[in-house]
Design a protein around this nucleic acid. Sequence first.
DNA 1: GTGAACATGTAACAAGTTACATGATTGA
DNA 2: TCAATCATGTAACTTGTTACATGTTCAC
Lengths: 181, 181
Amino acid sequence: MNIRTLCLGILSFKEASGYEIKKMVEDGMFSHFIDASYGSIYPALTQMLAEGMVTVRAEEQSGKPDKKVYAITPKGQLALGCAIDVLPRPDKFKSEFLFQVLLMDNLEHDRLAEFYDVRLGELKAELARIRECCTAASLHPGHKFVNGYGQAVIGAAVTYLETMRDEMLAPGSGAHTEAAE
Amino acid sequence: MNIRTLCLGILSFKEASGYEIKKMVEDGMFSHFIDASYGSIYPALTQMLAEGMVTVRAEEQSGKPDKKVYAITPKGQLALGCAIDVLPRPDKFKSEFLFQVLLMDNLEHDRLAEFYDVRLGELKAELARIRECCTAASLHPGHKFVNGYGQAVIGAAVTYLETMRDEMLAPGSGAHTEAAE
DNA sequence: GTGAACATGTAACAAGTTACATGATTGA
DNA sequence: TCAATCATGTAACTTGTTACATGTTCAC
């Protein structure tokens, strides 16, 4: 799925500016399974405007620069429908953290502990954020499902990291501790 | 983390050919959190050979073309150590499936059901595969941890999809069923 | 005899990110 | 006054993927 489809999907819920789309992807409902930068959103919007997939409306704001609010058109709805109607590619998960844990023999114990706790903190923060989203996330079944999915999966990760913490970070479990034996 | 580091990391466990590295990334211990294609592995290996990070040994094979078995050098170990010693970037998860569920109003019920069950099947298969890995996965704490992480997270996803299946796929829960009311 | 698995490699291409450019307002 | 937030946009750059090129053996 490309950025164009992502923008159309978001606009199908609610008209928004490029800036707002980025914000939604960054800290909203979409944050835990989608990514997009300004450098991809703005060109996509401009392009789709030329193709009649979306319309713009300049919204004046005191002080701040004008906001360009985009809305999806029937043509855009159609394109969205087509893009959505194909079997999704398998989910993709990438983790440098897990790679580093795998290679823990090459890492000092304290360093591993640091990375471990940073990661655990990130996961907890992410869990807290999507839990908040949920409160606001209305009754829409799609929203509820996606939110619940995030909570289930990230919750499982947090639980796992917490239960394994002692075992993994106990002195004597990794390399660089040969002296202890 | 780039492909070079990935190759070094794998070679730090065991010497291997480019083809074998790909296989490990594809169906081994690494499969659920890393990706790499031949088009990135082979050039990385060639490059690192020129830089003295790895060595090669041509292994003759009856029939099949010679296998080029790479092994990590002390210089490569050092480079790996440095690459590993930086705070990992946050994990990244991408899901077209969740995006489609979010947009379920734009999708026919049967289509959603199809995607749902395909995804559930993929997750179950993945879970089964990493469970098998575990059996062989020795006692190395890093391996055990990563394998357990995968099982915890994917297991949670499977459980979630299974418990939500009826609710999500029941007729009358989505769009395109307005006629039923 | 046809396709899959083994095995290596390259070049064109896709897609999106980073960094830059600009500029006002607001809060610390 | 310095950083952050709001706001849009472009161009160079990274990174890796896809598709192609080549060739053998084994199983169905």
